[in-house]
């Protein structure tokens, strides 16, 4: 009789308990995406309508015959809840579009660079070095100043300033994988460069790239906020979580709710994306699956 015989078989906790974090994250993101899509019909007030008489109202204030200001109002009397619902559109678009754009551009350049090696690698990596040597905010401000304010330009500038991160990671992976035996095997079979890059290197380089991308989504939301705060991102008439956070900061001591609720929205989005991307990473990696 050994100790193993005495120990009861480990009981697995129910599926719902094991995946509680994933469920919550999924639910939050679903709500966020739905409210972004259905913003027009969900908001109790026009998020841009100013009403100086009802400014800086605390959360929960309500007047007869009007919907309650659930999350209060800002210094211009705009409803914070309506602002958050409308602002989710910009924040989510910026967050995902920049990551997808920069991820595709950076990965393509990095993988070609790492597999091709030689002069092309030198040229591309010096380009990356030059760009990374610039302080991000300086480069972004400069480009926004040249291009002008606007959603499309914000996305474009964030793609241009963040692709080198993906290029670096993708290149390192491609360098590592280009000497792996299964890539040599593919060459011995007669596979051409496009096939090797797409079928052998890219799928095996994805794991770290997905991790980088997942961490970048919240970062892009914050960068958009920073650019808007500095007055070169979105015009202040456009609502995003970033612009709300920026304007509410000045009133933090008198009306904490103006900056706090958009901040909570950002934090919850970041957490949800991180939890889900970790689950995605585990699912994508065949060596971690079913464990």
């Amino acid at each position: 009789m050994t100790a193993a015989d005495l120990e009861p078989a480990p009981r697995q906790s129910p599926w719902v308990v094991r995946h509680l974090a994933h469920l919550l994250a999924g639910a939050f993101l679903t709500v966020a995406i739905l409210s972004a899509l259905l913003a027009r019909w969900l908001v109790p007030y026009d998020p841009l309508m100013t009403d100086v008489l009802s400014n800086l109202l605390p959360p929960g204030t309500s007047f007869d015959g009007q919907p309650a200001y659930v999350l209060g109002t800002d210094m211009l009397g705009r409803d914070v809840l309506s602002g958050i619902i409308y602002g989710s559109r910009i924040s989510l678009i910026v967050g995902f579009a920049t990551v997808v754009g920069a991820g595709v551009v950076g990965t393509a350049i990095g993988i070609i660079s790492g597999y091709h090696k030689g002069w092309l690698d030198e040229v591309l990596m010096r380009l990356v070095d030059i760009q990374l040597a610039f302080p991000f905010i300086l480069l972004a401000i400069l480009m926004m100043y040249v291009l002008g304010q606007g959603l499309f330009n914000v996305i474009l500038v964030l793609i241009i300033t963040t692709w080198p991160i993906y290029a670096r990671v993708a290149r390192a992976e491609a360098l590592r994988l280009s000497t792996s035996e299964y890539v040599t095997a593919a060459r011995a079979l007669g596979a051409g460069t496009p096939r090797i890059l797409l079928r052998h290197i890219l799928p095996n380089a994805m794991t770290p790239l997905i991790v980088v991308a997942a961490f970048s989504v919240p970062q892009m939301i914050i960068y958009e906020a920073a650019l808007s705060f500095l007055g070169v991102g979105l015009p202040s008439s456009e609502l995003s979580w970033g612009t709300m956070l920026a304007t509410g900061r000045d009133y933090l001591t008198q009306a904490w709710w103006i900056a706090t609720f958009p901040g909570i929205a950002i934090v919850c989005t970041i957490l949800s994306i991180n939890v889900l991307s970790e689950a995605l990473r585990q699912n994508l990696d065949p060596n971690l699956r079913n464990q």
């Binding site: 035996e181 299964y182 040599t184 095997a185 799928p203 095996n204």
Partner: peptide, 8 residues
């Protein structure tokens, strides 16, 4: 273990 692409 190294000569077969783990994702194929």
């Amino acid at each position: 273990h190294a000569s077969l692409n783990p994702r194929m």
